[in-house]
Amino acid sequence: MFPWVYGFSWTPGHVIFVGVFLTVAAAVAVTVFLAVFRSVQDFRRGKARQIAWQSHFHDLPASDRACRHALTGELKGRVCDNGFDCRQCSVHARLTAIETAPPAGRLYHRGHTWVRPAGDGTLLVGLDEIATKLLGSVGQAAAPPAGTVLEANAPAFTVRKKGAEFRILSPVDGVIVESHDGSQGWFARVKPAENYSDVHLLRGHEATAWFQREVDRLQMAACQVNGMPALADGGVLEGDLSEVLPPGVWESLSAEMLLDS
């Protein structure tokens, strides 16, 4: 194969044959090397987390990636391609340009967490009703300790229940200043980051529409289970869902709701 190996000759056939092979081998090696190199670069530039989330996000079923403006009916059937991060979304910016009213009450993240200004410059972060129904109360042990840096859309902490594991996504950028067991509805008090923005969070009638859809999904899944309190108005879900739903359905449903595919 090489000039120094017995039997090699500089005939066109030999040269083409070996040349093509070495080119292919080199191309494969270079491409793999490039992938490794780029991965290292991503880490250096701190893009690793964003890439990981985008990758997760793209694996979600299309129905789970519905744009907030599709939920409210402003747009038809739009699937989000920004990883639920409306802060960089031009469509969102265009549609909300006229909206000036300051947000009131809770702002919801698509991973079923919420944020509420505590009034003293900090933010309270908690699990919403659906997440609580699915997981029960989180407990102090699971909540992240003070000093933990949170990044929007990145995992904030992990909940284990009935052998299943779910990671809870953080709704905001910031640092936890106080963690709580969730008994009062919130699990962390967060000092927002400097570039804190809440435009990616659902509010007002968006939140209502989204919440309604999520309840519908739960209802749909719950319908097949005997003895499940399925309420026509979709308002209240009774009981601990992990007890009522069959384990497979409960885990799959919880994972989808919490955006943990």
């Binding site: 490039l34 992938a35 490794v36 780029r38 991965s39 991503d42 880490f43 893009k47 690793a48 890439i51 990981a52 985008q54 990758s55 997760h56």
Partner: peptide, 8 residues
Amino acid sequence: GYLVFEHE
């Protein structure tokens, strides 16, 4: 970095 490598 598995997912990052996968992505790249």
